[in-house]
Simulated assay, not measured.
Amino acid sequence: MKRIVIASITTAALLTGGTAAVASTGAPTTHATNVSFSEAAQAALKAVPGTLDSLDRDHGRWDAEILGKDGKWHEVTLDGSNAKVLNQHIDRDTDAEDAAEAKALRNADVSATEAARKAASRGTVTSVEFDGDRTPVWEVETVKNHKERDLNVNAQSGKVTQAPSDDD
């Protein structure tokens, strides 16, 4: 009976975009992520006005990196069930690569939310990250039918393409 309950909770959590785990006591613990990408992006940018550089759903939370209007890099962690800010701080460990990323991000015609919207037809968006190297793109991860898909959204044109596979 316990296996059926755990399997049911795991299935329900995965269908709603969350994850489920079993604590050492055997009691199920659910880390549901009910907050959509756009809701998380809006909450992160409300906490730190600026330009969203990345937003990633992980273990029932959303982790955001924002180039603030103050020109500093900010990291914000949001609760995945209600979008409340759990942690927020300025990233003080920046270098020349971060400055180049900031410049490319400021020159992008397509925002993180627009990139997510363009990729959403291919599944539920779980991560968007700006890559300013070479041709600036938004790297977008989507999930559909329990299958992860990596897409690139051109930061200038908005064109969506399949990301090259990682041959690690």
Rank of each mutant, 00 (worst) to 15 (best):
M1C: 08
M1T: 13
K2Q: 15
I4V: 12
V5F: 14
V5M: 13
A7N: 12
I9Q: 12
A12F: 08
T16W: 11
G17W: 13
T19H: 06
T19R: 07
A20K: 06
A20E: 13
A20L: 07
A21Y: 02
A21D: 08
V22F: 07
V22Y: 08
A23N: 09
G26E: 04
A27N: 08
A27S: 07
A27T: 14
T29F: 09
T30Q: 13
T30C: 05
H31T: 04
A32S: 12
F37Q: 02
S38P: 07
E39C: 02
E39S: 09
E39N: 06
E39T: 05
A41Y: 01
A41G: 02
Q42R: 09
Q42E: 15
A43L: 09
L45K: 06
L45P: 02
L45F: 11
G50Q: 07
D53L: 15
D53R: 14
S54N: 07
D58Y: 05
D58E: 14
H59P: 05
G60T: 03
W62G: 01
W62E: 02
D63Q: 10
E65Q: 10
E65A: 09
G71D: 10
G71A: 12
H74L: 00
H74Q: 00
E75D: 15
E75V: 13
E75L: 11
V76E: 00
T77D: 09
T77K: 15
L78M: 01
G80K: 03
N82Q: 07
K84W: 07
N87Y: 10
N87R: 13
N87S: 15
I90F: 04
D91C: 01
D91Y: 02
A96W: 05
D98K: 10
D98I: 10
A100F: 13
L105W: 02
L105G: 00
A108H: 05
D109N: 14
A112H: 11
T113L: 00
E114L: 05
A116G: 07
R117I: 04
S121V: 12
S121K: 15
R122W: 06
R122Q: 15
T124R: 14
T124V: 08
V125R: 06
S127E: 14
V128M: 08
E129R: 14
F130A: 06
D131C: 04
D131L: 04
G132F: 11
T135S: 08
W138L: 02
E139V: 11
E139L: 10
E141Y: 11
T142N: 00
T142W: 00
T142S: 00
V143C: 03
N145L: 12
N145D: 15
K147Y: 09
E148L: 10
R149I: 04
N152S: 01
N154G: 05
A155D: 01
S157E: 09
K159I: 11
K159P: 12
K159T: 15
K159G: 12
T161N: 08
D166I: 02
D166C: 01
D168F: 12
